[in-house]
Amino acid sequence: MNEYMINLDKVSRTYKEKNGTDFVALNQISLNVKKGTIHGLIGPNGAGKSTTMKILSTLLLPSSGTVTMKGIELQSNLNAVRQDINFIYGGERDLYWRLTARENLEYFSALYSLKGVEQKEKIKELLELVQLTDVANKKVETYSKGMKQRLQIARGLLNNPRILLLDEPTIGLDRQSAEEFKNIIRHLAANGTTILFTSHYLEEVEDLSDEITIISRGEIVASGTAQELRSNIGKELYVHAVVENVVNRKQAITLFSRYFGDELSVEKYVERTGNVIEMKVSLSNKKLDDVKLSSFVQNSKIREWKIGSPSLDEIYRYYTTV
């Protein structure tokens, strides 16, 4: 068990809405993150990503379930984990705009009991890391969005966190800064920091993550390495097609049965605008005949056709579309 730095066990969280009803933002989430790995959390707006991050940042308690961080049960020991974690939320928040970058870092490092030479060194090192040394003595209000975001990153690293939580950290960063940020993250993970992050940039998630969890409407719908996620959907057959004149599920199945015969059973069928359909199908006979297949495609007025491994983007859409 102890190889996990972050461990969520059947964690739920409800919010009271204005009209008094309970809204379930997280429903029985279980999630493990191994030490020194980077774990990406993706899902549509309102899925519950930030709620998860807030719980882990000790800013919110779960309504039920157990959260364990570095082996310590979180709910009754908030202060025991605070020294060893930190978070970076995207955007320009979490900074004192009327202080300089250096003063901001002094202030926040004092909250984590850094002092004297150690404090000075750390601040110097971080300012260099995020390339703000030149403007360190200017007030934050004069900074651009990207500079503020970079200062946030420095703030989040002040206490050498063993667990780092990132909620859309690269939002508003330009390409180059985002790239540098990713390098920082990789470097941290290589040195043993455990990282959980959310992002809407799937490319970035695939690029960075050791493992990925997809969350939708407060529930985990898939979790694993990119490879595992892929084979989850694609190991039997994953079809992504643009088909003319297909209006419903039945027609699609009839159409595809013509080629696949009775062996086909549809596990998931998704229809999109513009005649695009996605299907997850199981086949008892997995051997596909390329010649037969291409003649089928031509005869069935299927304009585009793909069988095999889905991209992360497709996996994501597959799981998060209702």
């Binding site: 000790t58 978070f87 955007g91 928040r93």
Partner: peptide, 9 residues
Amino acid sequence: MGVLGSNFA
């Protein structure tokens, strides 16, 4: 400025 959270945590 959104700094309450980072102070609180």
